[in-house]
Design a protein around this nucleic acid. Structure first.
Lengths: 122, 122
DNA sequence: ACAATAACCGAAAAAAGATTCGGTAAGCGT
DNA sequence: ACGCTTACCGAATCTTTTTTCGGTTATTGT
């Protein structure tokens, strides 16, 4: 896992939250697992924009920080792995919902500004 | 302002939210302004870890997306600028609070994992 | 007149994060 | 036996974000 060069202030709650579920795909993965899509390959098919590698890496981080747990029959070789939310992972869901709602409430405005930017760039 | 090469999915609320108040310092700046610290130089003194340049840039983005507004007497030259939250900016505060509380509730665990990582890296 | 402060900006560089590519090890269907 | 899928990893590369540095313009205090 990547280790930062510059130390971060983990006394700031927002920074802690960003570390655990920030980043481009972690929220989507938590959402998928919450919906019962809990095997890597299935998550990959659910989140079509993300490559398999990204999903593996983000699963590893979510696992590392204890937001999800791995329930695989480690008999001989992994093969069948399933991930589920831990109570800690579940406690993130209300925040995701709030953020998602906020974003959807304001996306028209943001999209418009985005278009302005793109025009100006030409 | 930086213009991405790769398009992002602004139909996902979380992505929209991240665009407006994600990033390393935007939340801190919103918090500062909310506390009545509303001039760039004062915000700089409040958030000591961030350079003046960063604060300017992030203020510009917050302004661009309409989370804050600039109330400067543009008489002859800027000089005195004050920023305040717009209603849209205020609507972000509950989310920040929730994230901050979540982070503070879980920071011991995260800090410990962080220490493990650093040890392993040596 | 001179130093200090405020508000800004452009551009380069560094750091962080995401993506692609190629690989391993194992099981399942035909 | 052969190809397909699953799970996973390392490393190079590219994109995005953050930081640093040096500059402009104007005001205030001495």
């Amino acid at each position: 896992m990547y280790n930062r060069k510059i130390e971060e202030d983990l006394d700031c709650g927002i920074r802690v939250a960003a570390k655990v579920f920030g980043g481009k795909w972690k929220c989507c993965i938590l959402d998928a697992i919450n919906r019962g899509i809990n095997r890597p390959a299935d998550i990959g098919r659910y989140i079509t924009d993300a490559s398999a590698r990204v999903i593996e890496m983000q699963l590893a981080e979510l696992l590392f920080f204890g937001a999800i747990e791995k329930c695989a029959e480690e008999d001989v070789y992994p093969k069948k792995s399933e991930y589920r939310l831990t109570p800690m992972g579940e406690s993130i869901l209300p925040i995701l919902e709030l953020m998602d709602r906020w974003g959807l409430d304001h996306n028209e405005l943001v999209k418009e500004r985005q278009r302005e930017l793109e025009h100006a760039a030409v």
